[in-house]
């Protein structure tokens, strides 16, 4: 199957999803509404990312989609069925990687994968999966002795053991060293190209920017905006310009007084400066003259269009960690 055809029926369709937790002692016995009308569609052959800060409701959303949590309102359709009443046939078509792994500490990776594969009538080729995810070097080591990256790769293999059509990944890059991250990300793209519908959550803009074909930004229990990464970045609001200049130099420059009046400038960290506004070539000349007059030479200089981070800040008013 080829990529990104959003006119096909979605493999996951969530509408008006509501979830209440509680009553909670920390809220004087009151209920708290953690999801308040989440809507999203995920398609085969695409990576769909739920992007949001911790506590935004990403994990709760996909746990309702997996049938691990019951919902208090709205509809969820996973491969045309309601996951709240999942049958073993539906579960056989869906692979799940939980945020905490869910692997028994005493188990040995290869034996565990073979055990899980036994639950399916046509499981994945476990030897190929072990080779692909580099599990061979720790195939006999108890789970409790594995590094974070090794555990995460094993959890990914466990999610794929049944050769699923839909794959859920909850914070897939959590705890990953750069090498594990490259292996996992390559495999996600390859599976996407083979036609799997992949739904992941992440609080990292970089993950979303590098992996996702389609992004839903989740904030305070709602999906606040969605689109492809380029769509989201290019959807410039009429009142704002799409350019950002960042530079690094000695700390403590009075940057607000040296930029032209139609731009705004702040020192975000000591020695890091951000200039925003309708930047023109002439503004760069003004800045360069001011640096020259102050005897300052920037050590780094970058001019960029809006980032996904700007979009995120704009829609949620919050910063990601």
């Amino acid at each position: 199957m080829l990529r990104s055809n959003r006119s096909d029926p979605p493999c996951l369709n969530i509408d008006g999803l509501v979830k209440d937790f509680g009553p909670l002692p920390s809220l004087e016995g009151k209920m708290v509404r953690v999801l308040d009308g989440v809507a999203l569609q995920a398609y085969r052959g695409q990576v769909t990312a739920l992007l949001g800060a911790n506590g935004a409701g990403k994990t709760t959303t996909i746990e309702c989609a997996q049938g691990l949590l019951s919902r208090d309102g709205g509809t969820v359709s996973l491969l045309g069925e309601d996951p709240a009443r999942a049958t073993s046939s539906l579960r056989a078509r869906v692979g799940v990687m939980l945020q905490d792994g869910g692997l028994p500490p005493a188990a040995r990776p290869l034996a565990l994968l073979r055990h899980i594969a036994g639950m399916y009538s046509r499981p994945a080729d476990i030897d190929a999966l072990v080779a692909r995810l580099g599990i061979g070097s720790f195939a006999g080591t108890p789970v409790r002795r594995l590094s974070g990256g090794q555990k995460q790769r094993l959890a990914m293999a466990a999610a794929l053991a049944g050769d699923p059509e839909v794959l859920f990944l909850d914070e897939p890059s959590a705890g990953l060293d750069p090498q594990s991250r490259a292996i996992v990300f390559d495999l996600v793209r390859e599976l996407r190209d083979e036609g799997l519908g992949i739904v992941l959550t992440t609080h990292l803009l970089d993950d979303a920017q590098r992996l996702a074909d389609y992004v839903y930004i989740v904030d305070a229990g709602r999906t606040v905006t969605h689109g492809t990464v380029p769509d989201l970045i290019n959807a410039t609001r009429p009142t704002e310009s799409g350019r950002v200049l960042t530079f690094e130099a000695v700390p403590g420059l009075d940057v607000a007084s040296i930029v032209p009046g139609h731009l705004s400038a702040v020192e975000t960290r000591p020695g890091s400066y951000t200039v925003t506004g309708p930047l023109a070539a002439a503004d760069l000349a003004v800045l360069a003259q001011a640096w020259d007059a102050a005897g300052v030479m920037p050590t780094a200089l970058q001019l960029s269009p809006r980032s996904l981070e700007d979009v995120f800040l704009e829609v949620s008013g919050k910063e990601l960690p």
């Binding site: 997996q66 049938g67 691990l68 999942a86 073993s88 046939s89 579960r91 056989a92 869906v94 799940v96 939980l98 905490d100 792994g101 869910g102 692997l103 028994p104 500490p105 899980i116 639950m119 399916y120 466990a158 049944g162």
Partner: peptide, 21 residues
């Protein structure tokens, strides 16, 4: 009790084994 702590019950209930199994 420990399977529950480590999320093993949750993970296995997403496979065809399910809670009943």
């Amino acid at each position: 009790g420990f399977d529950r702590r480590y999320g093993v019950l949750r993970f296995l209930s997403t496979t065809p084994l399910g809670r009943t199994g």
